[in-house]
Amino acid sequence: MKKGLLWMSQGMLVGLIMACIVVPMLTLSVSAYSLESFHLKSKSASFVWGDRIDTPGSVIRNAWESAISDWASASSCDFYSSSNSVNELNSFYESSSSLYGRTKLTYDITTDAIYIASFEAKINAGNSSISRSNVARSTANHEFGHLLGINDLSSGTAIMNTNRERSTIYIPQTDDINGVAAVYG
């Protein structure tokens, strides 16, 4: 009887140790960032304002500007406007559509497959929810995440979560910041 109790308590101790190792691993895997196969060569990247938002003040221009400072304070990444850049930030108006944003990038498959050669990131001004508080900013921060090498997620507290509540998750989260740090160090 006494021996049985001893074995049981030893078994419980082993179980407890295993739980301490396994449970954090499980919670980590739920919200862990995922890396894209390519990213911007430099974490400091230029862009031009597209023709639809070249004067300040619109919802979408403001969203991009907020997202630039959000990523600058969350990481060492820096997006700056420069009139002779090959990259572009813009907006488009797609009606009858629930699309929030679209980022198009080119890369060279033969020589520089891990680096983005140019990008064009746009937010849909025609989405009926885009003017709701923080939705455009959430979209802008998400698109920057793609350029910085982190991939979409289907769950978790992350700007890269496709299924996030956009009015509450609108700036880079710890998981996104960890992902970008893993890309650029």
Binding site: R102, T103, K104, T106, Y107, D108, A117, T162, N163
Partner: peptide, 21 residues
């Protein structure tokens, strides 16, 4: 000319994973 060989387009659509959503 640096010819474009490959392009990736990320579409940010609202995607749901349950019937309730």
């Amino acid at each position: 000319i640096n010819e474009t060989q490959a392009m990736k387009i990320f579409y940010d659509y609202p995607v749901v994973s349950t019937f309730d959503e």
